[in-house]
Simulated assay, not measured.
Amino acid sequence: MAKFWIGVVSKEHVLRGVEGGFCQVCHGKKGPLNRMKKGDYLLYYSPKYQLNSQEKLQAFTAVGKIIDDTAYQVEMFEGFFPFRRDVSYYQPIRDCLIEQVRLHPEWHQYASQLRYGHFKISKDFFLYVFEQMKLDNPVET
């Protein structure tokens, strides 16, 4: 049975993963990636646009499905060998600001976990956020 996860990553890094068809969480650590299994779903939350910037975003920025069996290591640049997983990303989608999900009954439970970088969520919460991200879903004004 598929599980559902949140990864906390800057939007700039999320976009690299979407473009390359991979995910990377917790600064490339292997353990969190191997908690996910093939067929699990990953929802990215981006607190900021860029890792070393103070400019806040606070939005869900990508969603995908894990399509490989285990984490693998790559050399991203000299001396840095993070682990990754292959992901099939859903597109096109739009960012979903946290204001759009604060009314969900589980939001407060997950909001307090965002500092951990990677954690499991309920299918219900995942589907709620994913609905908000779909382009054919009208945004309330």
Rank of each mutant, 00 (worst) to 15 (best):
Y45G: 04
M76L: 14
V139M: 10
Q113F: 14
T61M: 07
M1Q: 12
F126D: 05
I121Y: 01
G28Y: 09
K37M: 13
R94H: 10
M36Q: 03
C23P: 03
K123F: 10
M1I: 08
G17I: 03
P82Q: 12
R102L: 15
M133Y: 01
K38N: 03
R94E: 00
G117S: 07
L135S: 06
D86L: 12
L127R: 02
L114N: 09
G28W: 07
Q54W: 13
K120I: 13
E131P: 01
A59L: 14
K3T: 13
Q132V: 02
M1K: 14
Q113I: 11
Q58D: 14
L127E: 02
I6C: 06
P32G: 10
H104C: 13
F80C: 04
E78F: 11
T141C: 06
I93H: 00
H104S: 07
V25H: 13
P92L: 14
Y116S: 08
Q113G: 08
G79K: 01
L15F: 12
W5F: 14
E19H: 06
W107C: 09
F83H: 10
P138S: 04
L43E: 06
Q91Y: 09
E131M: 05
V101M: 06
A2K: 15
L127T: 06
R115C: 09
Q132F: 04
F130W: 06
G28R: 11
E106A: 08
P32T: 04
V139T: 08
F125G: 01
M36R: 04
M1C: 11
E106H: 09
L51Q: 09
E55K: 03
Y49W: 05
I67V: 05
F81C: 07
K30C: 00
K56Q: 12
V8L: 15
L114C: 02
Y110N: 03
P32L: 08
F119Q: 04
P32Q: 12
T141S: 08
S53K: 04
F130C: 00
L103N: 12
Y116G: 10
